[in-house]
Simulated assay, not measured.
Amino acid sequence: MESAIKTLVTTFISSSKGKENLDSKGFKNLVEKQFSSILEDANSADKVKEMQQGLDANADGKVSFGEYLTLVGYLAQSMSDRKTAAAAQSD
C-alpha cells in the first residue's frame, strides 16, 4: 500500500512539474498516459476537459492534488465494483 501511495504522489508531482496544481495540459497528459487503459474517453480532448471541469471543485481552472485524488478514488471504486460483480457471477 505504501508503494501505491508513493506512486500516486510521484505521478502527480511529475505531471504538475512540481507545482501544486495541474493545468489543463498537465491534466490531459496525465489522463492520457496514466488512465488510458481504464478510461474509454482518455484520448478525447473534449471528454478530458469535461472531466477536469467536473473535478475542479473550486473552479480555479486547475486540478489540485485533492481533486486528483477524487478521480483516483472514483476509478478505484469503479474497478472494485467491476471485479466484485465479475466474482459474484463466477460463483
Rank of each mutant, 00 (worst) to 15 (best):
M1R: 10
E2D: 11
E2L: 14
S3P: 08
S3N: 09
S3F: 13
A4C: 08
K6Y: 10
T7H: 15
L8N: 15
V9F: 11
T10L: 15
T10D: 09
T10K: 15
T11N: 13
T11Y: 10
T11Q: 10
T11M: 04
F12Y: 07
F12I: 04
I13T: 02
I13N: 05
I13P: 00
S14I: 06
S14D: 09
S14T: 06
S16H: 02
S16K: 02
K17G: 05
G18P: 00
K19G: 05
K19I: 04
N21C: 07
L22R: 01
L22T: 03
D23H: 05
D23N: 14
S24A: 15
S24Q: 13
G26F: 01
G26C: 01
F27D: 00
K28M: 15
K28F: 05
N29A: 00
N29D: 03
L30S: 02
L30I: 04
V31D: 03
V31P: 12
V31K: 13
E32R: 10
K33F: 05
K33I: 04
K33P: 02
Q34S: 08
Q34F: 07
Q34A: 14
Q34G: 08
Q34P: 08
F35Y: 12
S36H: 06
S36G: 05
S37N: 10
I38P: 01
L39Y: 00
A42C: 07
N43L: 02
N43G: 04
N43S: 05
N43C: 01
S44C: 07
S44D: 15
S44R: 07
S44L: 08
D46Q: 12
K47R: 12
K47E: 13
V48Y: 03
V48G: 03
E50S: 14
E50Y: 07
M51T: 13
M51G: 12
Q52G: 15
Q52V: 07
Q53R: 11
D56L: 08
D56I: 06
D56A: 14
D60R: 11
D60C: 13
K62F: 06
V63H: 08
V63M: 10
S64V: 04
F65G: 01
G66P: 08
L69Q: 14
L69N: 09
T70A: 12
T70N: 07
G73Q: 09
G73C: 15
L75I: 13
L75K: 09
A76E: 07
A76D: 06
A76T: 15
Q77E: 04
S78W: 02
S78G: 02
M79P: 13
M79F: 14
M79R: 14
M79L: 15
S80V: 03
S80T: 05
S80P: 00
D81W: 01
K83F: 12
T84W: 02
T84S: 06
A86F: 11
A86Q: 11
A87W: 05
Q89W: 03
S90M: 06
D91T: 10
